Simulated assay, not measured.
Amino acid sequence: MSFRDKVAIVTGAGSGNGRAIALQFLAEGAKVVIADINVDGANETVSLSPQGDNAFVVKVNVTKKAEVESMIAQTIEHFGKLDILINNAGIVKFSTFLEIEEEEWDLVHDVNLKAPFLCSQAAAKEMIKSNTRGRIINITSVEAHRIVSSSGHCQPHYNSSKGGLNLLTKAIALELAPHGITVNSVAPGVVETPFTAKGLENPEIKAWILDRVPVGRVATPNDIANAVLFLAKAESEYVTGATLFVDGGWTIH
Rank of each mutant, 00 (worst) to 15 (best):
F3M: 00
K6N: 04
V7G: 00
A8N: 00
A8L: 07
V10L: 09
V10P: 00
G12K: 02
G12A: 07
G16T: 02
N17K: 09
I21K: 01
A22C: 11
Q24E: 10
F25Q: 01
E28F: 03
G29M: 06
A30G: 04
I34G: 09
A35S: 15
I37Y: 10
N38K: 07
N38F: 10
V39Q: 04
N43L: 11
T45Q: 01
G52R: 05
G52Q: 08
G52I: 06
D53E: 13
D53R: 00
N54L: 06
N54K: 07
N54S: 01
V57S: 04
T63N: 03
T63D: 05
T63K: 05
K64Q: 09
K64G: 03
K64I: 10
V68K: 00
S70K: 13
M71W: 00
A73T: 12
E77T: 10
E77S: 10
H78V: 05
F79N: 04
F79C: 06
K81N: 14
L82Y: 01
I84N: 06
I86K: 04
N87I: 13
N87P: 08
N87Y: 14
N88V: 02
I91R: 09
S95P: 04
T96G: 14
T96N: 10
F97L: 15
L98Q: 14
L98K: 12
E99N: 09
I100N: 14
E104A: 09
D106Y: 10
L107Y: 06
L107R: 11
N112I: 00
L113A: 09
F117N: 01
L118D: 04
L118V: 02
C119M: 08
S120D: 03
A122W: 09
A123C: 12
K129M: 08
S130P: 07
S130Q: 15
G134W: 03
I139E: 03
T140I: 08
T140V: 15
V142H: 05
H145P: 07
I147W: 04
I147F: 03
S149M: 04
S149Y: 11
S150T: 15
S150A: 11
S151W: 14
S151G: 12
G152W: 06
C154M: 10
C154Y: 15
Q155I: 07
Q155Y: 11
P156C: 02
N159W: 07
S160F: 07
G164M: 13
G164A: 12
L165M: 10
L168T: 02
I172S: 05
A173L: 03
L174K: 13
L174V: 15
L176P: 00
A177E: 08
A177Y: 04
P178I: 10
H179A: 15
H179D: 09
V183D: 05
V183N: 03
V183W: 01
A187H: 12
P188L: 06
V190K: 01
V190R: 02
E192M: 14
E192Y: 13
T193Q: 10
P194M: 11
P194T: 01
P194F: 03
L200N: 06
E204T: 14
E204I: 07
I209K: 05
D211C: 15
V213L: 11
P214H: 13
V215E: 12
N222I: 12
N222F: 09
I224F: 08
N226A: 15
V228L: 09
L229M: 07
F230L: 10
K233I: 04
A234N: 12
S236T: 01
V239C: 14
T243E: 11
L244N: 01
D247Y: 04
